[in-house]
Design a protein around this nucleic acid. Sequence first.
DNA 1: CTAATGTTTATTGTATACATAAATTTATAC
DNA 2: GTATAAATTTATGTATACAATAAACATTAG
Lengths: 234, 234
Amino acid sequence: MTETPTVIPQAQSGKKPLSQTQRATRMLREMIITNKLLPGSSHLETELAEMLGMSRTPVREAAIVLEGQGLVEVKPRRGVRILPLSPADMEEIYSILTELESLAAHDVAKNGADEEDLARLRALIQEMETALADDDRHRWAEADERFHHKLVSLAGNRRLQTIVATYSDQVHRARLLTLHMRPTPHRSNEDHRALVEAIAAGDAERARNIHREHRIRAKTMMIKLIASHGLRAV
Amino acid sequence: MTETPTVIPQAQSGKKPLSQTQRATRMLREMIITNKLLPGSSHLETELAEMLGMSRTPVREAAIVLEGQGLVEVKPRRGVRILPLSPADMEEIYSILTELESLAAHDVAKNGADEEDLARLRALIQEMETALADDDRHRWAEADERFHHKLVSLAGNRRLQTIVATYSDQVHRARLLTLHMRPTPHRSNEDHRALVEAIAAGDAERARNIHREHRIRAKTMMIKLIASHGLRAV
DNA sequence: CTAATGTTTATTGTATACATAAATTTATAC
DNA sequence: GTATAAATTTATGTATACAATAAACATTAG
């Protein structure tokens, strides 16, 4: 894979100067998932190149990468189009995420997690709870994302991680949008606690089922919210 | 000028002259999954370009696409490397395929398949059986692939189909390799029949479980075969 | 006014040029 | 003979040039 989506931290001490293609890929992905480039809009290669201060070549290569990750579509003479997500698309993606994250939960429980990892997961749940207490949904969402990411990474299946990251990126916009429309996610935190217990107990099937139900609930809510607000795409 | 074919499901019908990049992508992928380009080997962009009779640019773009599909790795000054699969890689991929194909089986059973689709699946099983009777494993494998492909396509989740296709490509080499080492796949056909029955009965959970077990068996056998032949990568 | 045709423009696909940095080789010192 | 440094080669990353062609526009016919 060219790049693992949503792996922002690279700035530390690994001082390899990024290539222009890498920079273009990151910047464009960031602008897409944070809605700086609006879904449905099209952008000529030249425009993007100028905007990013580089030539067309790296922009073109970045577009190919992002197309492979389902974020854009490169249309022959129409430029690069930011793909909108319909409720049907969301349904597709959430089904896949549900299944793969549940597999991750299963595998983590089966292979066993050490105390450090369990502590990390519990700390993230705690973080979500205090964020909720402070009515800070943004912080809650961030901790939630990190929880799911950590869970998947513990499964130790790199490809699984890549797929989940890719599709999580795709629904990131929708999550941002519904964050303030949804009811307070208390139930979500209960699910998380139950999941960590199942993992700690090494009960793989229970972990899988808890997480699957958790994900299905999230999906149902998301679709309903989008539909109830009359959004045809995001 | 009456019809502009936007999405052509298969080959010839729309004879849009492929771009060089598309040609490069197809040719390289084909050469990789059929072992014309050996796993672990590296190839400079210039070599590949000359080999395919085009300039470096489209080769480069194809390499980016194939890298996104996990078939190659582009190493800074080492050229394009055909990625070998270790048993651990295979384990990763089969886990993902197991889960996603099982989801497909579940969804197809849940949404219901019409008689035509069921007939098609049954015809493919029949094809596998006659191929086995003729001791023609190649034909069996082809029908098997088409059966799995058909199953997944019936689920109607385009992204699911894409992921399964991508990872199926990755293990294609290994399947070719073990095709003649494995015992006659009678059990496999029984599984297929049971699956189609569960789908016809609309029993989603049963369909899911049957297919999951089927896939797990396939995975175990594959890993054992590879290991028993002392192969560290394919 | 509408449809058909010709003309212009704009954008892409691909080739190519070139500076840069990695890899490799050669030279030099110890 | 080994280790270090300098020189050379090489492949890449990126910019740029340019022909091909789809889209947009203007023109003409009906």
